[in-house]
Amino acid sequence: MSEPLLAARELVKHYGGVEALRGASFTAHAGEVVALVGDNGAGKSTLVKCLSGAETPDSGTIAFDGAEVTLPSPTAARALGIETVYQDLAVAPDLDPAANLFLGREIRRRGLLGALGVLDRAEMRRRAAESFADLGVSLQSLDVPIGSLSGGQRQSVAVARSVVWASRLVFMDEPTAALGVVQRERVLDVVRRVRDRGLAVVLISHNMPEVLAVADRVEVLRLGRRVARFTAADTTVEELVGAMTGALTQEER
């Protein structure tokens, strides 16, 4: 396999007397979906925060595209082409899908109107429609507040927003949580499309059948450390659960 796009080595992170990460390592390659799994308290959220710039590890190294980097903020991560879809979505329910897609990156009108802060809503809507179509995101309407859309559609918009602005890697934290079967499949199809565009996708999920359905590789955290790595096509739910709980070590596999 080629060199990883993202490689974390021996990350340690303390919150007071709590050691959330105890030498955690992780890798992600371009053009793959790698799932990050572990029981509650395994350190998944803390690891993702460190890798997306939301937290700074106390020690350890992070390499991106072969060069060691520091990620002091999400802005620094975004500058490298890294975006994150959080479990709470962070969408603005009163704004339409196009406005949510360009939230914080609004397009202004040209000339004096733009200098006065007037937004080019028509251009944002045109680009949003193209982006949604490219990712296979089907919405009831681009003219209604996103809060009136179904859970799956809101989730798809949140995923699309990150994908549109990400050029290298996307973290997706429980992107199908609380969705029905049909809605879940739509979101997973978007995940596959993102991978097929050559981006690295890091999927954090508690849904093991879903992980095996969409991921190429799986990395398992337990008690703040990576304890196993699997090729998704060659493993089972039972093996993943065994690694998560400590009942199975990879050497036993």
Rank of each mutant, 00 (worst) to 15 (best):
L5F: 05
L6A: 06
H14A: 13
Y15D: 12
G16E: 02
R22K: 13
A24Y: 04
A28W: 04
A28I: 01
A28D: 00
V33G: 00
V34H: 12
D39H: 07
A42L: 00
T46F: 07
K49H: 08
T56A: 13
P57W: 00
P57G: 10
S59G: 11
I62P: 07
D65N: 05
A67P: 04
E68S: 13
A77W: 11
R78C: 15
G81K: 06
I82M: 09
V85Q: 07
V85M: 00
D88F: 07
D88T: 11
A90G: 14
A90K: 08
A92W: 15
A92P: 10
P93A: 02
D96F: 00
A99R: 04
A99F: 04
N100M: 00
N100W: 10
G104S: 06
E106I: 05
E106S: 14
E106Q: 10
I107Q: 02
R110M: 14
L113K: 12
L113I: 05
L116M: 08
D120C: 01
A122T: 05
A122F: 08
M124T: 03
R126H: 08
E130P: 01
E130F: 01
L135R: 03
S138I: 15
L139Y: 06
G147F: 14
L149M: 07
L149A: 02
L149D: 05
Q153Y: 09
R154Y: 07
R154K: 08
V157Q: 05
V159M: 00
V159A: 03
V159Y: 04
S162E: 09
W165T: 08
W165C: 11
R168M: 11
T176L: 07
A177I: 09
L179D: 07
V182D: 14
E185Q: 15
V190Q: 02
D196Y: 01
D196F: 09
G198L: 08
L199F: 02
V202K: 10
H206S: 07
E210I: 11
L212R: 11
R217N: 08
G224D: 08
V227P: 06
A233V: 10
V237D: 14
V237H: 13
V241C: 06
T245Q: 10
G246W: 06
T249W: 15
Q250D: 13
R253K: 14
